[in-house]
Design a protein around this nucleic acid. Sequence first.
RNA 1: UGAGUAGAAUAAACGGUCGCGUGCUUUGCUCCAAAGGGCAUUGCAUGAGGAAAGUCCGAGCAUCGCAGGGCAAGGAUAACGGCUAACGGCCGCCGAGGGUGACCUUAGGGAAAGUGCAACAGAGAUAUACCGCCAAUCUUCGGAUUGGUAAGGGUGGAAAGGCGAGGUAAGAGCUCACCGGCUGUGCGGGAGACCGGACAGCCCUGUAAACCCUAUCCGAUGCAACAUCGUGGUGGAACAUUUUGCGGCUGCCCGUCGCGUUCCUGGGAGAUGGCUGGAGCUGUGCAGCAAUGUACAGUCGAGAUAGAUGACCGUUCACGACAGAACUCGGCUUACAGUUCUGCUCACGUC
RNA 2: GGCCCGGUGGUCAAGAGGCCUAAGACUCCGCCCUUUCACGGCGGCAACACGAGUUCGAAUCUCGUCCGGGUCA
Length: 111
Amino acid sequence: MAKYAVIKQNYEFRRAYHRGKSFVSPYLVAYCFKKRYGGIKMGITSGKKIGNAVARNRSRRIIREAYRSIYPELSGNWDIVFVARTAVLYKKSTYIAAVMRKQLREAGVLN
RNA sequence: UGAGUAGAAUAAACGGUCGCGUGCUUUGCUCCAAAGGGCAUUGCAUGAGGAAAGUCCGAGCAUCGCAGGGCAAGGAUAACGGCUAACGGCCGCCGAGGGUGACCUUAGGGAAAGUGCAACAGAGAUAUACCGCCAAUCUUCGGAUUGGUAAGGGUGGAAAGGCGAGGUAAGAGCUCACCGGCUGUGCGGGAGACCGGACAGCCCUGUAAACCCUAUCCGAUGCAACAUCGUGGUGGAACAUUUUGCGGCUGCCCGUCGCGUUCCUGGGAGAUGGCUGGAGCUGUGCAGCAAUGUACAGUCGAGAUAGAUGACCGUUCACGACAGAACUCGGCUUACAGUUCUGCUCACGUC
RNA sequence: GGCCCGGUGGUCAAGAGGCCUAAGACUCCGCCCUUUCACGGCGGCAACACGAGUUCGAAUCUCGUCCGGGUCA
């Protein structure tokens, strides 16, 4: 976890849900919130709807791997929260990375 | 060969590149008096399960309570012997039930200590007499009344043990033989539950996963326990109570209000420990029917804290089920694609 | 991770071994009333989370699953 910053506090998640812009796809939802300082921070939510513990871990790993491939290209001060959906379990991380790249370009995080 | 039954093992494999957690390590920068620490980085090692799950039992460990012992309340368990740290677990065995059999199931003490409950049906539910049967009396000869009886009918989950003979007005364990059950005495076998005979007495509804009785066991709470460091605020003590400064009312001036330091107490942000070497694992020998125990040799196999196993490429196959450690063990229960092995049983065929 | 409750028609719910073939209210359907709608009246449909066990008999008692909820400051 040393390479990229991680969102830990509950208020940061809530701030992203309420005031961030959302971008939807069948595999994941991205909430992006622009800050004044603090750099790029990322958080993942995989709720009970995804399934059991194995499925929740699996969804987090795929999203984290996709984010890892995109992370060096990001710049600015943003809080990004990804919410996993059930369909993410049946896709490869490279496919998810392409979807995520499109969402982040829409948000303006990625140029 | 087919069908079945009991048990055990395994939980896709191999190679390459990038990435993550932990431990050790290389180098650089940095904090520090030092010990040591922080950040980045190099290399090596290692990194989820048989159920990690449910949280249903039993323990370790920790805090609180408690001199020690007993009683009561509440809860749990229930044939017998053994194993175990302990258990409601396991092994063996007995009884009961099921299966042609291998084998499987079994909350399996006490209803003869007491209390309660048993709807509907039925004459009657722990005590009786509706239809019957028999006798006596009366009779309008259809039957009625009184008494005896419980074999037969019908109801029900259950109706005073079953069946045969004797007996009788009709009948009845009323009597007898056989069978069944209960209680007591004594005999043989067994470690015991229990099994097999003998004698005497008796023949009694079920329900204790209804209250209850008997025997045995149990203090409460749980790692978000707990210990240490420690911020703000609280309380107490000592010193100071002048100036300067800061903040609020209020953007500025005036005015006005508040604000000190040290030690102790206390424990709420946060941090560290607890945190993994243990009733451990593997192999062999010995004891035991087995559960298990023991001796020797070898071995160290996760420890996170938003929570580590992923991605891509190549090869092979049966194309991969259920499913993710969170203080740790022993069990139980539940979920589960396949593959392999072993013991045994039944049926058919051949020699 | 630990601890503790609950599950009855579409909804809210009573029943705590037999009178249960399961009360009641709202909803829904049909009929009546009204010129029509509403209100009202009459009638009807519809449920014991699932699987075993104890018992003559289980929504109720026992055990195990599956869901739902609460709680730790």
